[in-house]
Design a binder for these strands. Sequence first.
DNA 1: TGGTCTAAACTGGTCTGGCCAATTTCTATA
DNA 2: TATAGAAATTGGCCAGACCAGTTTAGACCA
Lengths: 238, 238
Amino acid sequence: MDLTRKKRTRLYEDVVEQIRRLIVEGTLAPGDQLLPERQLAEKLGVSRSAVREALTSLVSLGLLEITPGSGAYVKEIKIDQLIDPLASIMLKEINDVFDILEARQVLETGSARLAAQRAERTDLYELHEFLRDMENDVNEGRDTDESDSQFHFSVVRASHNTVLINLMTVLMGLMKEYYGPSRKRLVENRPYREMWALQHTEIYEAIKSGDPEQATDAVAKHLDTTIKEFRRLQGTDE
Amino acid sequence: MDLTRKKRTRLYEDVVEQIRRLIVEGTLAPGDQLLPERQLAEKLGVSRSAVREALTSLVSLGLLEITPGSGAYVKEIKIDQLIDPLASIMLKEINDVFDILEARQVLETGSARLAAQRAERTDLYELHEFLRDMENDVNEGRDTDESDSQFHFSVVRASHNTVLINLMTVLMGLMKEYYGPSRKRLVENRPYREMWALQHTEIYEAIKSGDPEQATDAVAKHLDTTIKEFRRLQGTDE
DNA sequence: TGGTCTAAACTGGTCTGGCCAATTTCTATA
DNA sequence: TATAGAAATTGGCCAGACCAGTTTAGACCA
């Protein structure tokens, strides 16, 4: 009848907590090396297996990075580490693949509008780089997957809004997880790849000319055709 | 000089990935029990310690829950659990409080546009409820914090896009974390609360009438005034 | 027959000790 | 002095064992 302690605390959790505190409090800075597992075990008075489980947990939490033969190092936390769990949560709720594309449309049109107002020389340069990358990919028959994502990401980055950038990171992770396969078939369709490259150019020009409305429309149009093409591909399945 | 494989894959990571896929793909539903560690080890042809590290990792990722003496169970996870870590990561990168509001503007205007096209009777009813809640709060001098958030959330829900809804959840968590204090002063300002209630009505009417453009504009205007008022309040600080 | 209590089986938690492979450090040699 | 090779260190993985709870099944009683 002891309601105070709901579940027995596991040993490795204590270890996790101790190390976590050191990191959060700054005693252990990113890049610092932890004591070797064997020494940690001795120092904390637990077995190496307990220490190992703790370290495994901390790696999963994104706080550590372990190099075999070398040691465990404190890691700099980035948003990417949260995307996997985030994706697995959202994926279960998503009924329709197009929800992701639609969300992208919302996010990217808004970002493009801001980008048109704020893009700096370096942003435009980056956009142009990825634009050229994609054209090259198309011309040489390569996969445009990477250059396409990069371009879209650049648009959002050009908005200079860190929150939007992070949300876009989430969406990108979601996309990879969700429709990697169907995407393949889409990008293999040559006419569409060419149309895409063209539409990317339109987006780029709109942002460069600083016209928010035009930029918004260009992105909306681009994703509209993407969604339509996805629908068509899906239609041929059934 | 082998650039293809940056780091050797650890055994337990494979196990993590296998189990994760089963969960994400739905083969393992929340509440399901996994095989005992010893059986898993045998089945996968690895040692029990490898399995244990994999399970430890999955627990840290929030996908499993383990009860000593009983077994490992697939956990039902909600997005809320990830908001805290997500917020702590994003907060470090956010330079400007207004990035959050701006992101909300992007997300909510897009959602409102969709809501105008898709809102069903139940959605409109819900919106109307929260509208009335807020009016009551204003009239009786109560805090409008809750009813305000609820209304905005309802707009996004009426878009019937689960991805947008989840992103909005993230933003809401971020808001709470970031500007709880300044927000208080804002909602204490009576004239603004009244204007807000009025603008909410406009949003509601626009969605009800099924006019996407009008809905978009109404939300944009509403958040514009919010942002301006925030700026004004911040200006008085310094 | 139906319910209860107990003992065995099972399950996760932890430990010990060992071997391997990669990395780092040290050392002897050119 | 520079470098190649040996030795020590470190994490990855394994086998087997014991403990402390939980679950299960069977014996026993009403």
